[in-house]
Design a protein around this nucleic acid. Structure first.
Lengths: 197, 197
DNA sequence: CGCGACGTTGATTTGCCTCAACGATTGTGG
DNA sequence: CCACAATCGTTGAGGCAAATCAACGTCGCG
């Protein structure tokens, strides 16, 4: 097992805390590496999976299906991002979300209990999770703020500025859902914007 | 300084991690206790305050003022809750939010750097912050989900069920703002609901 | 007591949704 | 590798949930 193949995870951690290659090796003994084909489910709604995932390759989404059968995108993830159903992960309750691979995907899977043990062995990992959880929290707060204060068109323009790569990589219906508008309306917004410039 | 007067903070921490009274005493040496009169600002928009606050008594809100001058409520807080501008706190950027006391309020103030030092002395505090940040993250995710999938009336009914005490304690205009609807529309919803039962 | 903020109610408007039909693209099995 | 299906994106018509605007009653506070 060489570090090179785990560079993405290593870098992600080093960005926030002091971390050695030895630490990484220890951490990896707690991880399962899994592969998913495009379209496969990483977590199924209703499943009891107290796990979180770090994507090494590919892309995935987490979405919710409401009582009318409409799908609502909660989160995107690509290489270097974490994805899970945080509510289920924290509370140990059944998953409310589906997490699905949108491309062939390779990821690290960590179980809740294993992480707690890891924190004891390597406190820096807990610091790392505090840092990234705080960032995720801040970005969800920003999303709420945008939902409250911006029009559909402004939200879309904002999204393209913030995530130009996601815009190209994910289908428009998912982007529309993420932004809280219908796919048809996003299509009209894009037409309007391209006509203007 | 006796523990009794700090029971609320102590309990909040003990709910998540192992914590001694000695730990609490150490933690308190890093805290400032402050008082605010009803209406006073705890954090002003634009201020550089890398601080977070735990409310011992009273009530506060964090809200955003958009480019049209409309106020949007991001967060409520009462006794036993933490409140800050998380973005500003994490990044060290100027505050985007106003944090304001809605009643006479007493709180503990912790500076970002002090907390980092505290984590080194008492690792349990970092575990505690990971736990509560994760909870806050999960509840913002739930809020996004509700915004995406529920009608205004459903969001309101949900809110009353989840926070019956907040419903009584905060003005309706703030509750409407929190739920992403106009104050007038919330008024109409309440009338409709009271008429039905 | 009087002023200003808050809450209520109704009339009108609007941003966005829904539905439907059609073109474009992608995936799949023969 | 092509044919066909399925999914996705586009466009337009019509509708609705919620916003906005305005007027008035009410409450709390200096």
């Amino acid at each position: 097992m060489n570090t090179n193949q785990h560079q993405l995870l290593f870098d992600s951690i080093c960005k926030h805390v002091l971390f050695t290659e030895q630490n990484l090796q220890t951490m990896l003994t707690f991880a399962k590496i899994k592969q998913f084909k495009k379209g496969q489910f990483i977590i199924h709604e209703g499943a009891m999976v107290r796990k979180t995932h770090f994507i090494r390759k590919g892309a995935a989404i987490a979405y919710f299906i409401d009582s009318s059968g409409n799908e609502h995108l909660i989160q995107f993830a690509v290489e270097g991002w974490w994805i899970s159903d945080i509510q289920s992960f924290v509370k140990g309750s059944p998953s409310l979300l589906n997490v699905q691979a949108l491309e062939d995907t390779e990821l690290y899977e960590f179980a809740y209990d294993d992480l707690n043990n890891l924190y004891k062995k390597i406190p820096a990992i807990e610091s790392y999770f505090l840092a990234i959880t705080r960032n995720a929290f801040a970005s969800f707060q920003e999303r709420v703020l945008h939902n409250l204060s911006l029009s559909a068109e402004e939200r879309y323009k904002n999204f393209v500025l913030k995530y130009p790569k996601l815009e190209l990589r994910f289908q428009q219906k998912w982007i529309a859902s993420y932004l809280g508008m219908s796919a048809e309306f996003l299509s009209k917004i894009k037409k309007r914007l391209s006509g203007l410039q």
